[in-house]
Design a protein around this nucleic acid. Structure first.
Lengths: 341, 341
DNA sequence: TCAAAAAACGAAAACGTTTTAGAATAAAAT
DNA sequence: ATTTTATTCTAAAACGTTTTCGTTTTTTGA
C-alpha cells in the first residue's frame, strides 16, 4: 500500500504538504498540488480511512440499526426500500453504510451504543425495531447523531410516515365507496399502530360511523396466518363487516385467502384493503387497495437530515419530518353506493 | 472517550500491559488481567476500531457489493434473504458488514476495489451484479479475499444455487405431471440463466421432449410486464404450451395475469411455475409451484467460507460451493395424466 | 535595495492501538 | 549464595493520517 510517506518521497515534499495538497488546503501552491495529485494517481495512492478516522474523529461511515421483532430487517419490504433509498442518498455525500451488529447471541458482545462508538459512526439511523429496548434508548440518548424512522423521540430527528393521514385517507375512501361497517385488523402495539388506530377511530367518528368493539382485532404485522384467523372470526360475526382493513399488505393476502376459502368474492361479497403498497401488490390479483408509503422519500429525508445534523449540528432543527403516503385504489374495495339505494 | 492510556494510568501499569491484558495474551499475570478488565468496565472503556485497524491491518469489517441491473439490490427478495443470512453469520464471528458504496454518479468517486482498500475490508462478498463489469473483475482479481454469490470465477470461492438441479427437478416434476409441451421464459443473459437454460434443454432431451424454438423466450428478471407480454405471445401460438416456466416468481405473477386476462384458469387450462420461492408466493393464490432457493444456506455458507478464507487463507480450498434448492409443489401445475388417457 | 508582508512549505506531535525487544522481578536449579 | 530460567512487565516504535506552529522562500512596497 502506497502511503503519503511514499508520495512525499516521490514528490520531494514533506508529508504535511502531501496531506494538504490532497485536501486542497490554501497554503500549498497550485503547482505542488498538481504535482502531488498526478503522482498520487501514478502510484495508485489511496487514503487509509482508519488513519483518517483515528486522526479526525470522523469516519464518514453511518451505522444502521435495523431489526424487527421477526429478526428480518433486510427482508422486510418496507424497510428494505427505505434502506435502499437511504443508502443511495448518503452515497451522494460519500458516506458508507454499515449495518450495526445486532448479535445479542454473541457472548461478550457490545451494546448498540458501544458498537457505534467502537466503529466511530458519524451518525446512526434506527428503524424497524423495538424502540423501548433499553439499548436502543441508550443509543438515542447518546451524543451520536441519530435519526429514527417511524418513531419519534422528542430530542431526536425522526422521519415518520404519515400514518394518521394515511389511515384517514383510506377510511374516507372506503366510506365514500359506501361502506359503513368497517373492521380493522391492526398490528401489535407500537407507535405506528397507535397512530393508525387512533386515526381510524377519529375518522370514523367524524364520518358518523360507529365501530363495534368486535370489529377491532389484533394480528402481528406481516403474518398471513394470524390475519387469516382474525378474518375468519370477523366473517363469523352475526353482523359481519362489509370491508376489512389489514395491518399491511402481506397480512392482507392472508385475509384474502380466508375470504376466498369461505367461497366469497372480493370485492363483490366483501371488500378489503392493506397498508404499505408493497411492490408485488400491484401485480397480483386482486390488486390490493392500500396506502402506498413513500419509502423513497422517507429514506432520502432520513439520510439528508442525518447528514445535515452531522455536518452542521448547530443549524439543524430537531423535529419530526412527516412523509405522506398515497392512496392506491386497487380493485379490492367495491363501490356499494348503487347497491345501497 | 477513555483510552488505553487512561486505563493504564488508572491501573498503574503500562499501556502495553493493558493491551495485552485485554487481548488475553500469555505474558501478563492473571491478577493484572483481572484488574485491568475490571477497571475497563468501570471506566466504560471500549476499543477504537480505527486505531486497531490501522495497527493490525485488519478491520473486522466485511464489504458487500450488491447491485443488480435494476439498481435494487436491497429490495431484491432473493438477495435480501441471502444478505440477511450472511449478516447473521458473520456477526457470530464478530464481524461487521458495510455495504460498498456503489455511487458511480459521484464525481471523484472510487472504484469498488479502491473503496474496498480505502475501508480496509477484510473480505468482500459480491452478488447480484454484472460480473462482466471491469471494476468488479478488478476487485475479484485483487488480493482481497472474495466470495462471489451465484457466479463462479475460477480463482475465487463461490457459493451458487444449484440451478442445474433446480431446473431439472422442476422440469421433471412438470413432466411427471403429464406435460410435454413446456415453454420456458428465461431471464436475460447471465451465468444463472445459462445454467438454467442448458439444464432445461438437457432435461427435456433426456425425457424425450422436443422443445420448439418458439417455446423459448426472454424476459427480464422480476419484470411482470415483460413476462405478461411473453405469455401473451405464447398463448397466441397455434400450438401453445400446456405449461410455462418463468424466470422467477415475480415474473411468474405477471404471466398469471396474462393468462387470467385471457379467461383461462390456472392450472386447469394451463400450468405455470416460477423460480425462487419468494415468501409471499406461498400465501397468495395461486400458490405458485416453484424452486425454493435456499437463501439461508447460501448466505451462511458464503459467510463461513469467506471468514475461513480471511482467517486461514492457506488451509482454505478454493472451489464453488453448490447449494441445492427445493421443489415447492404449489397449485399451479396440473396433473394432466388422467386427462391424457 | 532592503525591510515587511505574504505565501509556501516542513518538523513534529498527536490520534489509540499493537508489538518487539529488552528490563525487572520471581522462581528454580546449582 | 549464585547462576539460570521463567515469568511479568515496560519503553518505544510503528501504523497513516491531520494539524499546529515555526521556518523558509517569494512577493510586495517604499
Amino acid at each position: 500500500m502506497v502511503s503519503m510517506k511514499d508520495l512525499a518521497a516521490a514528490c520531494n515534499v514533506s508529508i504535511a504538504t502531501v496531506s494538504k495538497a490532497l485536501n486542497d488546503q490554501h497554503d500549498v501552491s497550485a503547482k505542488t498540488k498538481e504535482k502531488v495529485r498526478k503522482k498520487a494517481k501514478e502510484l495508485g495512492y489511496f487514503p487509509n480511512s482508519a488513519a483518517k478516522a483515528l486522526k479526525t474523529n470522523r469516519s464518514h461511515n453511518i451505522g444502521v440499526l435495523f431489526v424487527d421483532e421477526a429478526q428480518s430487517g433486510l427482508t422486510h419490504d418496507f424497510f428494505a426500500n427505505v434502506l435502499d433509498s437511504f443508502k443511495r442518498t448518503i452515497e451522494l455525500s460519500d458516506y458508507d453504510l454499515t449495518l450495526v451488529n445486532c448479535s445479542k447471541v454473541n457472548h461478550g458482545s457490545m451494546t448498540y451504543l458501544e458498537r457505534a462508538r467502537y466503529r466511530g459512526f458519524d451518525g446512526v439511523a434506527i428503524a424497524c425495531i423495538d424502540f423501548r429496548d433499553s439499548e436502543v434508548i441508550d443509543l438515542v440518548d447518546s451524543n451520536i447523531p441519530v435519526v429514527t424512522i417511524d418513531y419519534i423521540f422528542n430530542n431526536r430527528i425522526a422521519v415518520i410516515s404519515d400514518n394518521v393521514k394515511g389511515m384517514r385517507d383510506l377510511v374516507t375512501y372506503v366510506y365514500e365507496m359506501g361502506h359503513r361497517k368497517i373492521a380493522y385488523i391492526h398490528g401489535n402495539d407500537s407507535s405506528v399502530t397507535q397512530a393508525r388506530v387512533s386515526s381510524f377511530f377519529t375518522t370514523c367518528t367524524q364520518l358518523g360511523i360507529e365501530v363495534p368493539d368486535e370489529y377491532l382485532r389484533k394480528a402481528d404485522y406481516r403474518n398471513t396466518e394470524e390475519a387469516y384467523k382474525r378474518t375468519m372470526e370477523l366473517l363469523d360475526l352475526s353482523d359481519p363487516p362489509t370491508c376489512i382493513l389489514y395491518p399491511d399488505d402481506f397480512a392482507g393476502f392472508g385475509g384474502v385467502n380466508a375470504i376466498r376459502e369461505r367461497g366469497l368474492q372480493i370485492p363483490d361479497d366483501i371488500s378489503v384493503a392493506g397498508y404499505d403498497g408493497i411492490r408485488i401488490g400491484r401485480h397480483i390479483e386482486p390488486r390490493l387497495t392500500t396506502i402506498r408509503q413513500d419509502t423513497e422519500q422517507i429514506g432520502k429525508l432520513a439520510a439528508e437530515n442525518l447528514i445535515r445534523l452531522i455536518e452542521h449540528p448547530r443549524s439543524t432543527i430537531i423535529r419530526p419530518i412527516v412523509v405522506e403516503g398515497e392512496l392506491y385504489k386497487g380493485g379490492t374495495v367495491k363501490d356499494i353506493n348503487r347497491v345501497a339505494q
